[in-house]
Design a protein around this nucleic acid. Structure first.
Length: 293
DNA sequence: GACCAGGCGCACC
DNA sequence: GGTGCGCATGGT
């Protein structure tokens, strides 16, 4: 076993990250047990299992492997930094939120809560699409079946670690194989077109990296099944564009409805007005507002 | 039994 | 370029 440590900023709460990661018992891509989260990772064409915990104000990563190349060590550390969003300076956001009626209490209550990311863009897009217009619990059920059936896994010290299916494997599936998992015809078709786009290189994390948000969104939205909401959500989770956030999100509408004490759904203009105050921090504002639901 | 979920594409105007 | 509809199923 190899142990790596990662320093964290003051405004970071490992417990908050864990409580987010614990939110579904159907999650197969990581397992939280006590104060430790376990996960399998692809590093440099290899697969390793890691155990992540928090010790002496640092993130501790135990890699269940006999040896790792220096490159692999770097990749593991980079993954964890991305996963927990350790490179974002939250001070300006908190300074702004302190003065905001909606966010004030939330940022105190959940201090150090960061956006748990999804470093794999393909996984982020597929997961966002799965979550369209159904409740989150059911989305997890669909994902569980999908991962069990089409994902790779490795067995390590009495535990099974699952990996998200790779686009190459999903692109060649027939939609009929997904229907027994309770996918709608629509979701089955979208699942495959998204995989095709990634498998044939039309879209990749590398090709979107560094693009302005609008451009990255347009590229993703060329894929059938990926609309504005899904593109924003995926870009927020993978690239952490601070201003990528799903404005038309049903949950956000409900927060604003409650806040403004409306007896109807807020209008898009009312939504924009609320979020105008959060310019540059829309993604983080969204994260904390979701917490209030 | 309604009604809504971390929407989207498409057919119609 | 706007509006309405079907989608599948679970939670409330």
């Amino acid at each position: 076993m190899i142990t790596l440590t990662v320093p964290v900023p003051k405004e970071f709460s490992f417990d908050q990250a864990l409580s987010f990661l614990k939110r579904s018992p159907r999650e197969l891509l990581h397992q939280v047990e006590g104060e430790t989260v376990r996960k399998a990772l692809r590093v440099d064409d290899d697969v390793v299992a890691i155990e992540v915990s928090f010790e002496k104000k640092k993130v501790r990563i135990d890699v269940l492997a006999e040896s790792l190349t220096p490159v692999q060590q770097e990749e593991v550390i980079a993954y964890v930094r991305e996963w927990f969003d350790l490179d974002t300076d939250l001070k300006p956001f908190y300074a702004m939120a302190e003065k905001d009626k909606l966010l004030k209490d939330l940022v105190q209550q959940y201090y150090g809560y960061r956006i748990v990311g999804q470093p794999d863009l393909y996984e982020a897009v597929t997961w966002a699409m799965l979550g369209q217009q159904i409740n989150v619990a059911f989305a997890y059920t669909l994902k569980q079946r999908f991962v069990e059936q089409f994902g790779a896994s490795l067995q390590m010290l009495d535990r099974r670690y699952y990996l998200f299916p790779v686009p190459e494997a999903v692109a060649v599936l027939s939609p009929d194989l997904l229907l027994p998992l309770q996918y709608s015809r629509q979701k089955a078709a979208y699942t495959i077109t998204i995989a095709e786009a990634f498998a044939n290189g039309t879209v990749s994390k590398e090709s979107l990296k560094g693009l302005p948000l609008q451009e990255a969104k347009e590229r993703l939205m060329k894929i059938k099944g990926v609309g504005n909401w899904t593109a924003n959500y995926a870009l927020m989770k993978t690239f952490r564009y601070p201003d990528a956030f799903p404005l038309e999100d049903a949950g956000l509408y409900n927060v604003v409805k409650k806040y403004k004490k409306l007896d109807r759904k807020p209008t898009p203009d009312e939504m924009k007005k609320v979020f105008k105050k959060y310019k540059g921090w829309e993604a983080y504002a969204t994260l904390y507002l979701w917490k209030s639901l």
